[in-house]
Simulated assay, not measured.
Amino acid sequence: MPTPTKGPRLGGSPAHERLMLANLATSLFQHGKIKTTETKARRLRPLAEQLITKAKRGDLASRRRVLTVVKDKDVVYSLFDQIAPRYANRNGGYTRIVKTGPRKGDAAPMAIIELVEELQVAEPKANKKTAGRKAAQQDKVEALAPADEAPQSRPADQDAEAPQSVSGDTVAARKDSDEATENKA
């Protein structure tokens, strides 16, 4: 059983607090950012991050768990299909709290809680060393393959170009350079 929150609840009973946080989470996912008191924003942050983490899983059980908190099916759909994929490479820290000035009527400290915008999903860059190693491995495989198992060639009426390596050298150019190095030795 979860440990109850110490101190006063936000607005009354624990049930009212849960409903209020669920409504704040719904508004956050619907609009991307909301302005609320600093205390409510701090209480909302862990709940919103847990819901996004569940949405990243994307399975039916996670969708049902999120639906127990966020009652609006359109918001749940946008959470699973638009918001969660943006944070695929991020392990946490989906929200940001920015403090603003005090509220005019009662001087309560106000804050804006917003979803952190992930610009783009970064593609892993190919390493130059691994590309060179793969090309060398491919050359070894070609050299070790028997000639009778060579792939079927094109018909004679089609012009076939000489294969090129990753560096751009043709087979004939490589043979010439290999013979030149053998003659020097």
Rank of each mutant, 00 (worst) to 15 (best):
residue 50 Q to D: 08
residue 87 Y to A: 02
residue 92 G to C: 07
residue 76 V to M: 08
residue 82 Q to S: 13
residue 79 L to K: 09
residue 70 V to W: 07
residue 63 R to H: 04
residue 93 G to K: 06
residue 68 T to F: 09
residue 56 K to Q: 14
residue 65 R to M: 12
residue 48 A to P: 03
residue 46 P to I: 01
residue 50 Q to Y: 03
residue 87 Y to C: 07
residue 42 R to S: 10
residue 91 N to A: 15
residue 76 V to A: 11
residue 45 R to L: 03
residue 63 R to N: 07
residue 38 E to F: 04
residue 49 E to K: 06
residue 47 L to A: 07
residue 37 T to S: 14
residue 43 R to N: 05
residue 57 R to S: 09
residue 83 I to M: 06
residue 91 N to L: 13
residue 89 N to P: 00
residue 94 Y to W: 08
residue 51 L to I: 10
residue 85 P to H: 13
residue 46 P to W: 00
residue 61 A to I: 09
residue 91 N to M: 13
residue 36 T to I: 02
residue 91 N to C: 11
residue 72 D to E: 10
residue 64 R to F: 01
residue 37 T to L: 04
residue 75 V to I: 14
residue 42 R to E: 11
residue 69 V to W: 09
residue 57 R to M: 09
residue 39 T to A: 14
residue 72 D to V: 08
residue 41 A to L: 05
residue 59 D to L: 02
residue 50 Q to A: 10
residue 35 K to M: 12
residue 55 A to I: 00
residue 80 F to K: 01
residue 56 K to D: 04
residue 41 A to P: 05
residue 87 Y to D: 06
residue 55 A to T: 01
residue 79 L to C: 10
residue 64 R to L: 08
residue 95 T to K: 10
residue 65 R to K: 12
residue 42 R to Y: 02
residue 44 L to P: 00
residue 96 R to L: 10
residue 48 A to R: 05
